[in-house]
Simulated scan of single mutants.
Amino acid sequence: MRQFAEIEDLAGIVRDALGAGCRVVTVDRLRGGSKKGVYRVRLGGTSTASVIVYSWAEAENFWPGAREADPADPFAPASGLAPFLAAQRSLDRLGARVPRVHLADDSRSRYPADVAVVEDVSGGTLEALFETDPARAAKALGDLAETLEVMHGHQGQHYGRVDLLERNGPVSEVSCERRVLDRALRDLEEAARRDGRIAAAGAALRDRLRELAERVSPRTEYGLVHGELGPDHVLVDADGQPVLIDIEGLMYFDVEWEHVFLQLRFGERYPALVRPGLDPRRLDFYMLAMRLSLVAGPLRLLDGDFPDRAFMQGIAEHNTKEALALLPLRQP
């Protein structure tokens, strides 16, 4: 039975962050996280009405049996205070809006896990705002496009997660496209073990992945990308500005990888985010690889005890159909 944080667990760390006079009134664990716990803490005795606490405790991580990761692989699981703070610093330096950090602690002396107390951005998600206030959402979407232009234009000569590059970690000798191909083939293998439709089309999907990868030319400069930027990972603050969250996977990589995810998650609103100069061959290859990732990942998560099972099953089912639809039609 997983044990999550209660008021008494978080009261001390929140007082350390905001001062001894603040009082924790309620603690609510927010839904949706699979690698860290996200808690909204409502306060009394202070001008700050609420804060968010991130907890990277083991009990908050629902991913079962992660395989041994190549330290140079930017797709290796990104979780913990170090990648969060490295991403927060990098984005803040570029002028991208991220939640302000009140306190960060990995000493385990105050709390038995990496923990951060951050600003509670009160405007909700961009995803929700599309439904409740379309005009305000459109303005935030335009500002998000400008933020992404800055991020993607911030180039590096090596790809990898920013926290690893910041620590002079290993630099991969494998190209981005080869990295994506290897990952997609593993995802295909995992998905085929869990879904008969993917298994039946396994050879065709494998051949298609390799064919698309062979069309991609080498590249030596990479943009700064969020990696999983959907409208649920963008909050909107009181001034209407977009605020990026779930930033631990921030990395230098092909910007087409980001744009494929943006296209999937923003759908009909994606044209507001598109930019000129994207490589169409990379987009085609990365789209199939992304679809397979969004089959294998949710199904892998469902091997464990992730609570919102219908939601994850729905993601896997939708992307199974979309991945199969990307195969060329057979000639009669």
Rank of each mutant, 00 (worst) to 15 (best):
M1H: 09
I13N: 02
G19F: 05
V24W: 12
V25C: 08
G37Y: 02
V38S: 03
R42M: 12
R42Y: 13
G44F: 13
G45C: 00
G45P: 05
S50K: 02
S50F: 09
S55Q: 06
A57R: 10
E68N: 11
A69F: 12
D70I: 05
A72D: 08
D73H: 10
P77K: 02
S79T: 06
G80M: 05
L81N: 05
P83A: 01
D92H: 15
R93Q: 02
P99K: 08
H102Q: 12
D105T: 03
D106W: 04
D106Q: 04
D106Y: 00
R110T: 07
V115P: 04
V117T: 03
V117R: 01
V118S: 01
T125E: 01
L129W: 03
F130Y: 08
A135K: 15
A137D: 08
L141M: 04
G142E: 04
H158C: 11
R161T: 03
E173D: 14
E173N: 11
R178C: 10
R179W: 13
E190K: 15
L205F: 12
A213E: 09
E214I: 15
R215W: 13
S217F: 02
G230A: 06
L235Q: 07
V236K: 06
D246C: 04
F253S: 12
F261T: 07
Q263S: 14
L264I: 12
L273N: 07
R275E: 12
P276Y: 13
R282M: 13
R282T: 04
L283C: 03
L288I: 08
L292W: 13
S293H: 13
V295T: 02
A296G: 06
P298N: 05
P298I: 09
G304R: 12
R309Y: 00
I315G: 02
A316R: 02
T320N: 08
E322R: 15
P328C: 06
Q331F: 14
